[in-house]
Nucleic acid binder design. Structure first.
Lengths: 148, 148
DNA sequence: ATAAAATAGCTATTTTTACAATTATTACCA
DNA sequence: TGGTAATAATTGTAAAAATAGCTATTTTAT
């Protein structure tokens, strides 16, 4: 059974629009919670996981700036997230020779192995749950319009 | 013009469902950012603002537990948030006489005045932006279904 | 009646986050 | 060329959040 947000919080909203705002935040938190609890078993935060995935996607060394650009959930402190990944030896880091301001990073063998392990069950967790393809499409359109 | 999340991030998603997840989180962050920047002028965090609104809605003294239950964005530390509101003298606090474990809180005159000031422009900020009534309704239905 | 369990709230500690300042290097241009 | 601006990354620091544990009180069960 579908439980609306009014039922869940025993609260009546002034308008569908205001309800949508709260519903959106609530659903996003609900999702983040699921994702956080999923990642915690691998001792990774979502931000760390995202950096790892970016690095896997990049295949080769890429700069910190490039990582920052590709991060969907922006984090103000990529350097320190990378420190954590270094500690766990999930990435490599080295200075660029041409431009000494730049630092390059690359995923390590251990990092790839960890991601491979996560991949096995990843899709079960990072899905839009009960939405059909068509419904997910509608949701995307509405969200895009909201921000436009 | 509506900018899809692919354009915004120059990234192709595996499915509409996976895109919906990212889109949802991204839109929620985008909203939180707007709200945070709006509240900052009143020296309130969103969590503090929400507690104030709950207390205004309650009218009389209610317990910390009741506040916690009614909070849509759960915070693990309601006590500390209330400390901040006490410092600013926006709420009153007192111990329950029947059950000495329980602490009651109520919004103060200053708190009500602050909320009244915020109310003047509140609707301009906490709206579902470009969505019509019907679209907001659709969005709510999709989000409810997602969590069901 | 008393010990165990549950509850309410608080506190202490660690992590994250946000923001600003700093360092090192490179680019620009008069 | 030399001085200033711009860029890349890191570091410092204060605020906020998350986590876990603690204390006092009440409830439950034997």
């Amino acid at each position: 059974m579908i439980k609306s947000i009014e039922e869940e919080f025993d609260y009546t909203f002034k308008s569908e629009q205001q309800k949508a705002i709260i519903n959106l935040k609530h659903t996003s938190n609900w999702l983040s919670n699921i994702h956080h609890n999923y990642m915690i078993q691998y001792n990774l935060s979502m931000a760390q996981f995202n950096i790892l995935r970016i690095l896997r996607g990049a295949k080769d060394f890429i700069s910190v700036t490039t990582i920052k650009e590709r991060m969907i959930e922006k984090s103000p402190n990529t350097t320190r997230l990378m420190d954590k990944l270094m500690e766990k030896e999930l990435i490599h880091r080295e200075k660029c020779k041409n431009d000494k301001r730049v630092v390059f990073a690359k995923i390590s063998k251990e990092g790839l192995e960890l991601l491979a392990k996560i991949d096995l069950t990843f899709n079960d967790f990072f899905q839009a749950y009960n939405l059909s393809d068509q419904e997910a499409k509608e949701l995307n359109a509405l969200l895009d319009k909201m921000r436009s």
